[in-house]
Amino acid sequence: MTQEEDIRNAVRVLREGGIILYPTDTVWGIGCDATNPEAVAKVYKMKQRDDSKALICLVDSDARLQRYVRQVPPVAWDLLDAAVDPMTIILDGAVNLAPNLIANDGSIAMRITREPFSHELCYRFQKALVSTSVNISGEPAAQNYCDIAPELLEQADYVCFARRQEHKPHKPSSIVKLGQDGQVTIIRK
């Protein structure tokens, strides 16, 4: 299967409200349309995760990030520009997303992916994509396709073919929370 076909299949499933498993700029992710509350609910159920714990969203560009946050503070752009490794930023004022994806305080965790496959997937989908690690909540994240538990493979509507043969260490992104007062809090290094 070509990457083009793989992405086309994944986008079709996402548009139908389905759940995909896909390689990201960090670990393998469980993905769905971040604007679809029913799809987001399926992800929480699949992970056996309390829906009070927010999920991360991936986007392909600065412009797309700005569609989902009322005001991106200048310090966010500075942090993203300075980041060497993938960085997720928690921003206040989430908009245009499924209500069950937004944290109780109105914030959302967003990351701009530069990894070729997930970037192209986000670009083709034209919306924010949920990106939470492939694992049951509390268990280790699937760094590679071979690490994915069989029951999670069975629950997905589509599993991407990209990078299935890969066997190398991957780690989750760093997470930084930006407060309304400009305060920067490191959640995960």
Rank of each mutant, 00 (worst) to 15 (best):
M1D: 11
I89Y: 03
F125N: 11
F161E: 07
V13D: 09
I187E: 07
V59M: 07
V13N: 08
H119R: 14
D51N: 15
F125H: 11
S173M: 11
M110N: 11
L79V: 11
T2A: 08
S131G: 05
L153C: 08
C160K: 00
R164A: 02
Q66K: 10
G179K: 12
K171G: 06
M46W: 02
I108S: 00
D78P: 11
I30H: 01
R49F: 10
E154M: 04
A156W: 00
T24D: 10
L58N: 08
K171L: 07
K189P: 06
K53S: 08
R188I: 07
T24N: 10
V27Q: 01
R49D: 12
D81N: 13
L153H: 05
I112T: 14
A39H: 09
Q71S: 11
A149D: 01
R8I: 11
I112Q: 12
Y123V: 10
G31F: 04
L129K: 08
E115C: 06
I19N: 10
S174W: 00
E139R: 01
S118H: 04
F125P: 12
A162G: 06
E115D: 14
A63K: 05
C160N: 00
K168N: 12
H119E: 14
D62R: 15
Y158G: 09
Q183T: 15
R163Q: 14
A34Q: 08
N144M: 03
R163D: 15
A142V: 01
S174C: 02
V43Y: 06
V69M: 02
D78K: 15
L65Y: 08
D78A: 14
L21C: 06
P150R: 01
I148W: 00
C122A: 14
F117Q: 10
I175W: 02
P150F: 00
A10G: 09
L121V: 13
A39P: 08
V84K: 09
D33M: 13
R8F: 07
A141I: 06
V43P: 05
L101G: 01
M110Q: 13
V184L: 06
N96H: 13
A103L: 08
Q126H: 11
K53H: 08
P172Q: 04
R70H: 00
Q71D: 05
F125I: 15
P37E: 15
V43I: 15
Q165P: 02
W77H: 14
E120S: 11
T26V: 08
Q143W: 02
C160P: 01
V27F: 03
T88S: 12
G138Q: 05
R49A: 12
V40K: 06
L65A: 15
V84R: 07
D157S: 09
C122E: 09
R8N: 09
G182F: 03
G179H: 13
S137W: 10
A94R: 03
R188D: 10
A41F: 05
Q180R: 08
K168P: 03
L14G: 05
G106P: 11
Q3N: 03
S133E: 02
I7V: 15
L21V: 04
Q143E: 15
R111K: 12
T88C: 07
N104P: 01
A82D: 13
K47I: 03
D92Q: 11
C146G: 04
E166N: 05
G17A: 14
V27C: 02
